[in-house]
């Protein structure tokens, strides 16, 4: 199956939840940015969290179709999720959401959104940020 499936390209061309900046409605907003240095992709997430639930998400970023589509798809999944549900998200969940085969060279593109998401929560809890090996599941 083509990596650049219509669904991926649609999210790349018309990213969801992108570019609204930190949209707080009286709730604490937490913002975090990660980048993939080897290709210069960046994703910044803004989360509004209430009662341990994600009430709003917006994000910004630049990069390849895979990293940007993955973040767009992931952002749709996150609405209303509890923090513990987010914490238990795995790389496989992201691959399933993408629905296209991700080869070894594109793993970091596909998982950039997950990586920034996990570290946003770590920041919120004042924990040490996790490295790529942990996000990818090599640890």
């Amino acid at each position: 199956m083509d990596l650049y499936a219509e669904n991926i390209l649609d999210h790349y061309r018309h990213p969801r939840n992108k570019g609204q900046g930190p949209l707080a409605k009286g709730q604490a907003v937490i913002t975090h940015m990660e980048e993939n240095l080897s290709c210069g992709d960046t994703v910044t997430i803004h989360l509004s969290i209430k009662d341990d639930c994600i009430t709003e998400i917006s994000w910004d970023g630049t990069g390849c179709a895979i990293s940007q589509a993955a973040m767009s798809l992931l952002s749709e999944e996150l609405q209303g999720k509890t923090l513990s549900e987010v914490e238990s998200l795995t790389p496989q969940n992201v691959y399933d959401i993408l629905g296209v085969p991700i080869g070894p060279r594109r793993v970091k593109c596909a998982l950039l959104g997950l990586h920034v998401l996990k570290n946003t929560l770590r920041m919120k809890e004042r924990k040490e940020l996790q490295g790529w090996n942990e996000t990818v599941g090599n640890d």
Partner: peptide, 8 residues
């Protein structure tokens, strides 16, 4: 992005 271009 160069990675998309070179992959395609």
């Amino acid at each position: 992005h160069p990675h998309d271009l070179t992959e395609i």
